[in-house]
Simulated assay, not measured.
Amino acid sequence: MSGQLDIYTLVGFVGMACIIAAYAYLTYKDEPNPFVLHGTNLTGAALLTVSLLVHTNWPSLVLEGFWAAIAIWGLAKAMKERRKAGN
């Protein structure tokens, strides 16, 4: 590993910060907003995926795919519940 950080590594760090922030938000709030929680997780997974496509680590890349899929599922569920509550 070189001592210099490239843009893709920095993007990965921002993604990591998003995922940590989402977990902290989930832990802190009694009733977290699912759009904030899952949206932040999806953003983090996407940013980490960008980094991992350049600096490939296959297990981490697969993990981010699952992380993104769960976040999308959570967002879809939240949208369905919002529509249901609006009717």
Rank of each mutant, 00 (worst) to 15 (best):
R83M: 13
T43P: 00
G3Y: 13
V36K: 06
G12D: 07
Y28D: 11
M79P: 04
A22F: 03
R83T: 14
K77W: 09
L47F: 11
G12H: 06
S51R: 11
A22T: 01
A17F: 10
L52F: 08
I72P: 04
K84S: 09
V50K: 03
P34T: 03
L63M: 10
L10Y: 04
K77S: 12
G39S: 02
S2M: 10
H55K: 05
Y25P: 04
S2T: 13
L42C: 01
V62P: 01
Y25Q: 03
L26T: 08
A21R: 01
A71P: 00
N33W: 05
R83N: 15
K77A: 12
I72L: 15
K80N: 14
L42N: 01
Y28K: 15
V14C: 08
G44H: 07
L75R: 06
T9E: 15
L47R: 08
F66S: 02
I72W: 09
N87E: 13
M79Q: 14
G65M: 07
A24I: 15
A76L: 13
A22E: 03
M79E: 12
V14A: 12
L52A: 08
T49N: 01
Q4V: 14
L75E: 08
L26H: 11
G86Y: 11
L52Y: 07
N87S: 14
K84F: 10
E81R: 11
T9G: 12
G12F: 05
P34I: 04
E64K: 12
T43G: 03
G39C: 03
D30E: 15
S60V: 07
I7N: 11
W73E: 09
H55Q: 06
K80S: 14
Y8H: 12
I72Y: 09
L61S: 03
L75A: 08
L37H: 01
A24P: 00
L75M: 15
M1P: 13
A76T: 11
A45L: 03
G65L: 06
T40N: 00
S51I: 02
I72T: 09
V54Y: 11
G12C: 06
N57L: 09
T43M: 08
S60R: 08
A22K: 00
A46Q: 01
D6P: 09
A17Q: 07
A69E: 04
L53Q: 02
A17V: 11
T43A: 15
A69F: 10
V54A: 07
L5D: 13
D6F: 12
Y25A: 04
T27W: 12
C18P: 01
S2W: 10
A78W: 06
G44Y: 06
V50Q: 05
V62R: 01
K29W: 11
I70Q: 05
F13Q: 13
V50T: 10
G44R: 04
G74K: 03
V62T: 04
L37T: 00
S51Q: 15
L61P: 04
E64V: 08
A21N: 01
I20W: 11
E64R: 12
G39W: 01
V36G: 00
K77E: 12
A24W: 08
P59S: 04
S51K: 09
L47I: 02
A46G: 10
G39A: 01
A68P: 05
G15P: 06
L53G: 02
S2Q: 13
D6E: 10
T40D: 01
M16N: 14
W73Y: 14
T56A: 05
L42R: 00
M16L: 15
T49G: 05
G74L: 07
G12N: 06
S51N: 15
N41Y: 02
Y25G: 03
